[in-house]
Design a protein around this nucleic acid. Sequence first.
DNA 1: CCTACCGATCGGTAGG
DNA 2: CCTACCGATCGGTAGG
Lengths: 198, 198
Amino acid sequence: MHAVERGYPKGRIRREDILTAAVAVYGEAGYHGSSLREVAKRAGITHAGLLYYFPTKEALLAAVLERRDAEDAVREQLNAPPGREVLRHWIALAEYNVAHPGIVELYTRLAAEAVAPDHPAHDYFVRHYRIARRSAYESFRVLGDRGELRPGVDPRVAALNYMALSDGLQVQWLTSPDEVDLVGALRQYLDSVLVEPL
Amino acid sequence: MHAVERGYPKGRIRREDILTAAVAVYGEAGYHGSSLREVAKRAGITHAGLLYYFPTKEALLAAVLERRDAEDAVREQLNAPPGREVLRHWIALAEYNVAHPGIVELYTRLAAEAVAPDHPAHDYFVRHYRIARRSAYESFRVLGDRGELRPGVDPRVAALNYMALSDGLQVQWLTSPDEVDLVGALRQYLDSVLVEPL
DNA sequence: CCTACCGATCGGTAGG
DNA sequence: CCTACCGATCGGTAGG
């Protein structure tokens, strides 16, 4: 049983190895384009062995997304309260992402697949985007209350647009890394919305 | 031979039916997730029959993208010279897209798959994005020369950002249509970049 | 354009 | 965790 397996160091390490392999494969081939055999091979076991740890292909995907959320939650705790500091944190995150294309590929590919309502990660992304927008909205709203947003800027729309801009830039950056300055473009967007540049 | 087939009305119509079916299926399942059998079924033939018109799966994809470019080229001819009129045309295009989710799904899914350099549509998207950015850049540059852009706005970055914003909004809109005002968000972006609102 | 077929690959199961 | 297997599905071909 997994509840038991989880408690033993060897099983935990194996699970982590499998998840790490899955992140890489999903990033390269998407979810539907990946096979359990490919993930298993990279983790050094057979695909039947993988199914001992994750009983179905969907269960593996769910575990990948769960782990990612857990990592994000840890980072959130280090977060500053809503305001300018949060925007600087976003830029730092973008810089981190540019140095880790694999994670960016995973999310870009999965998010596009998961627009289909019957995709196993669909509900995850509905929630993911909702939470991201709300969190960004709170920072922009605080800045607006302080008069730090340019007139005409709706904090709700600015929040949606920052998230969307970030996603869209990632697609073009992954497609043509040399032609797109991801971090610079995000900076200019924030500056175009703020009274005082970051 | 296709060069001949293309000349006969019946063959041309069949080809068009297959391409229309392919657009729908690619939008729902992506390219790698689609089967020739599914496309053929929707076109009312067998998958072997489809392969009589398009000899491989890749050839079908190439034809889908070719047709799309041909349609775009027709629209471009109706285009105004670079300037404010072009920005209004973009908004009109976004309104059209909101009424035709299938086309949006096709592009969103294919673009994400095609970030992989060995994807058969990779080169297409490299060119597609490059051309789109250049075209948008020319409009923003003209506006900048006329003093219609806010200070600090780089027309090159504004062009990149508009395209990226549009793509990113489409993902969130496809995921949660009721929670995202695609056209409104694009309008606010353009207004945030212009001295005088659109 | 179809019927009939091929080899390859897929997710999942049995049984140890 | 593995070996061995299952039924289903894939892109593509032969031959008409």
